[in-house]
């Protein structure tokens, strides 16, 4: 299928279509960005000024092949701005370092915490840090690079 084949039908003269949106892939929608305002009532030179199209995907996801989403349950990371129901972006390709928020696996369960020195630290005083003990399987799976939340 031609990825450019979908262009909204603007043949109807009653429709005041200001901009034709194209979808380059089924991954993300694009929002046009203009470098300056274009006066109305003039054969529009607007297309010359389209610089780029912003996409939430581009903003949040740097490496799509190694990126996964997970949903937060509970409020152990509340003070890091991570709330129950948020969708977190996990990039497995980034080498985790101390102080970053990471997705880790502890005894077969996933958890999101700050990475500390041999421990995982919550961002909520009601929770205890998880110390790495012998015989426990703890592995850091990826770095949390961002979060998403919908209000409506």
């Amino acid at each position: 299928m031609n990825p450019l084949s979908f262009i909204t039908n603007s043949r109807n003269p009653n429709l005041n279509v200001a901009e034709i949106y194209r979808r380059y892939s089924n991954r993300s929608a694009y929002i046009p960005l203009y470098s300056q305002k274009v006066p109305a009532g003039f054969p529009s030179p607007a297309t010359d000024f389209v610089e780029a199209r912003l996409s939430a995907d581009d903003y949040l996801v740097k490496n799509p092949i190694s990126t996964y989403f997970v949903r937060v349950k509970g409020d152990s990371m509340m003070n890091a701005g991570i709330f129950d129901g948020d969708v977190l972006i996990v990039d497995r390709s980034i080498e985790p370092s101390i102080g970053q928020v990471v997705l880790a696996e502890v005894d077969g369960e996933f958890t999101v915490k700050y990475l500390g020195n041999n421990k995982l630290i919550p961002a909520n005083a009601n929770f205890q840090p998880i110390e790495f003990k012998d015989g426990q399987t703890i592995s850091v799976i990826g770095v949390i690079t961002g979060s998403m939340r919908k209000f409506v």
Partner: peptide
Amino acid sequence: NYTTSWDGLVKTK
């Protein structure tokens, strides 16, 4: 569908 559906995402504490 862990990677292809919003309802299927892994839940993490």
